[in-house]
């Protein structure tokens, strides 16, 4: 499957949408398409209905938590040092906010091709965590979107039954988020080491 072609097909079918190719540098080279939230539903419908692609099966939906990242780069700046203008190296830090991501793996049972990997990202990790649900298009996404809601806290709009699936309903955290702090119940550790050692030492 040629991602460039799929991308141009999508852009032709859904006017005004912006699809980015996210390159996967690993040996698997499984590149993916990053979709905008406002067009995801139409794009998904196109991918399912298009006679050439006909992606009728959503095998897997995953959540990914991307923390805020800080990149620093060295920049040469002209600055007055002791009254003389000199070229000084300065470290500039740029902070890019984190986001939550839902990744969909699509296959076509009829055409026997796939996977096509779709990604959609939330605005941030705290308050704007809504994404459109693709369960109305691929029914198999229902439980997996519930699981992402449970473990990552992404709220899927349009999901028919968005409840927690693994944890109990009264639970408030999202355990798969990278900043999740689990309850420290490592009181009894016969052979602690690494992370468990640190936690057990707090008792």
């Amino acid at each position: 499957m040629n991602l460039e072609k799929i991308k141009s097909d999508i852009e032709a079918a859904v006017p005004g949408c912006n699809v980015q190719i996210v390159v996967n540098g690993s040996p698997s080279g499984q590149h993916s398409l990053l979709l905008e939230r406002q067009h995801v539903f139409e794009i998904a419908k196109f991918l399912q209905d298009d006679s050439e692609l006909h992606l009728d099966y959503c095998s897997n939906v995953t959540g990914v938590d991307w923390l805020d990242t800080e990149t620093s780069e060295k920049v040469k700046v002209q600055r007055l040092v002791d009254g003389v203008e000199q070229e000084v190296e300065e470290i500039r830090k740029t902070r890019s906010p984190g986001y939550l991501e839902a990744v969909y793996h699509l296959y076509s049972m009829e055409k026997k091709h796939g996977p096509l990997v779709l990604r959609q990202r939330t605005e941030n990790r705290t308050d704007q965590i809504n994404l459109p649900s693709l369960t109305p298009i691929w029914r198999s996404a229902e439980f997996q979107e519930r699981e992402i809601f449970d473990l990552y806290g992404i709220i899927f709009e349009g999901h028919p039954d968005l409840r927690r699936i693994l944890m109990w309903d009264e639970f408030e955290d999202h355990p798969m988020r990278k900043d999740y702090i689990e309850p420290n119940d490592y009181e009894y550790e016969p052979t602690p080491h690494d992370a468990v050692l640190e936690k057990s030492m707090q008792h």
Partner: peptide, 11 residues
């Protein structure tokens, strides 16, 4: 009981 972060009581 099912608590907000853990079982109540945890033990």
């Amino acid at each position: 009981e099912f608590g907000a972060h853990d079982l109540e009581p945890p033990k």
